[in-house]
Design a binder for these strands. Structure first.
Lengths: 224, 224
DNA sequence: GTCTATAATCGGATAGAC
DNA sequence: GTCTATCCGATTATAGAC
């Protein structure tokens, strides 16, 4: 019922795959057919939409127009498929570093605003959003995914941010960075998961102006 | 494996149930044995820990020391059990109203600090925490639970809070209240779900001093 | 009210032909 | 690389005895 594909005749021909970069070097080995990437794409979307437990190999295979057995053929188990699907092509820590650098060199707008804009822009990239959503939804149910998400937030976000905190004490710096993370994650969940209405449709600039100062204060202001 | 109860002999005698209120009026009908409440308790904890999809009727029944068939006998389906389990005994909107009233009458500390302290205190009440966690974890997977959570946040939190926003425009008031909700929810998730370390062990007063001013600014400050 | 079957379904995983 | 067939475990839900 979930897969009411009208026809299901054309399924074998997998020639319509979009060729990636191809920068002079020959793309891949000869025997390849793009199926693996199609499965990964479908998996990312399914994990993002339903979480680890809710996503099924059968459903992912259907989305990728592929036989379920092929998923096992390529990835072995569901766990390994998940691990492969949430491997980000772009390291988010680098985004933060860029935002920190940009914020430092721009006296016109604050560091906090740069961080919010960076986060909002990242949410708009399908692969990043799906990866983070998949991690988030899965962490609700799977202990393994929770650990991955915690490490992700701790290392990539808090780790980088604590360098920008206005404190010499490392413990204080991590505390400040964690406060920033709590507001950024909360904003993302409210907008993207909950769909909290006045927030979900607000513009980037508006949100940056609203919560940027909060992050500035968490990073280097007076905390009471 | 999850349920390595050592013995499982004593299971029938259900006489040790704690009597609730009992305010003059005879508690319940004669045929009662407290099983229903035991099931609800176990269900709340299981839904909080594993979400809707992850929690099983069998597991809930095991926790309640009861036969799985009894769960169906009392609640019919898993969905109806969930609905019954996440029905809060205390309406959280009233907590917010109290915090608003207390904050208004206390010039010593700000309204935002009162709100943070109220939220942190609510997290410490087992039934409230379990209900909210159950809703949260389930919303990650179940569309139905997501709707319930959204209505919960929208009506109980944003609805009440927007009354306290320093704006005449109702749309602006809801926007301000939603910003508050995003920070409060983010803090709760970071602490209770993610277990983000510097935050999870921070004291209530410290957190109130840190994020209280954020809420004050969202409610009635300059947003850019 | 409580429990023992048991039906019906679904999902992950494997073996092996082509 | 791809697909068919199948096994196995887990789960919701029901019927009906006591």
């Amino acid at each position: 019922m979930t897969n009411g594909s009208p026809g299901r005749t054309e399924r074998a021909g997998r020639t319509e795959r979009p060729r990636a970069g191809r920068s002079g070097r020959t793309g891949r080995r000869g025997g390849d057919s793009g199926t693996r990437e199609a499965i990964l794409d479908a998996a990312r979307k399914r994990f993002a939409a339903h979480g680890y437990g809710g996503a099924t190999i059968r459903g992912i295979a259907a989305d990728a127009r592929v036989d379920p057995a092929l998923v096992h053929h390529f990835f072995g188990t569901k766990e390994r498929l998940f691990a492969a699907a949430v491997r980000l092509p772009v390291v988010p820590g680098e985004l933060i570093s860029s935002a920190l650098a940009a914020g430092a060199g721009d006296p016109g707008s604050s560091l906090g605003e740069h961080l919010v804009l960076t986060a909002l822009a990242a949410w708009d990239v399908a692969e990043i959003r799906d990866t983070f959503l998949g991690l988030l939804r899965s962490a609700a149910t799977s202990e393994q995914a929770l650990i991955m998400l915690r490490e992700f937030v701790t290392e990539a976000i808090v780790g980088r941010l604590s360098a920008a905190a206005g404190t010499a004490d490392p413990a204080q710096a991590r505390y400040r960075a964690a406060l920033v993370a709590s507001q950024v994650v909360g904003l993302g969940i409210a907008r993207q998961v909950l769909g909290l209405e006045p927030l979900a449709e607000a513009g980037r600039a508006e949100l940056a102006a609203a919560v940027g100062p909060t992050l500035d204060r968490y990073l280097s202001g007076d905390l009471g």
